[in-house]
């Protein structure tokens, strides 16, 4: 292990698009950083703000929520709710002083393995210079 800071990222992936997209990245053997820990949920609309706070509380350096593209939600409109909810959470996190780069949302379809890879690469690259997240971390 090098001494370089390795951020820990929790990624909430919807089952139908983004998780399938990350599977496709795997099937296509597209390499990306191992910093991301995937948690598959049914829909991006089921990601409660509490999940995001919980991840930051427990020491995540970044949190990603990824769902189907707007209009393509497997559950018709779950990702619209996610989009609004996440915009609010993002504002709140910025308000309390968390670097905005640490929390992102992306739209990755089941056919977009390459995009998923890119999202993770960019995310890791953006967070690395920020160092560990301490703002919301408990039991530090």
């Amino acid at each position: 292990m090098t001494d370089e800071f390795e951020p820990r990222i929790v990624a909430f992936l919807c089952k139908w698009c983004s998780s399938a997209g990350s599977d496709l990245a795997g099937v296509s053997r597209m390499e990306y950083p191992s910093n991301v820990l995937p948690i598959t949920v049914m829909c991006s609309g089921s990601v409660s703000p509490l999940y995001i706070f919980s991840a930051f509380n427990k020491g995540a350096d970044g949190v990603l929520v990824s769902g189907c593209h707007p209009g393509d939600c497997h559950y018709l409109k779950g990702n619209y709710y996610a989009r609004r909810r996440i915009a609010l959470v993002k504002k709140l996190l910025e308000f309390i002083g968390l670097e905005p780069q640490r929390f992102q949302m992306s739209w990755v379809s089941a056919a977009e393995g390459k995009k998923y890879t890119q999202v993770i690469k960019d995310f890791v690259k953006e967070i690395k210079p920020l160092g560990p997240q301490t703002k919301l971390r408990r039991n530090q």
Partner: peptide, 14 residues
């Protein structure tokens, strides 16, 4: 899922 989301997309064994 330790294949598509892990072994197939990383090279560093550790």
């Amino acid at each position: 899922n330790i294949r598509e989301q892990c072994s197939w997309v990383h090279k560093d064994m550790e």
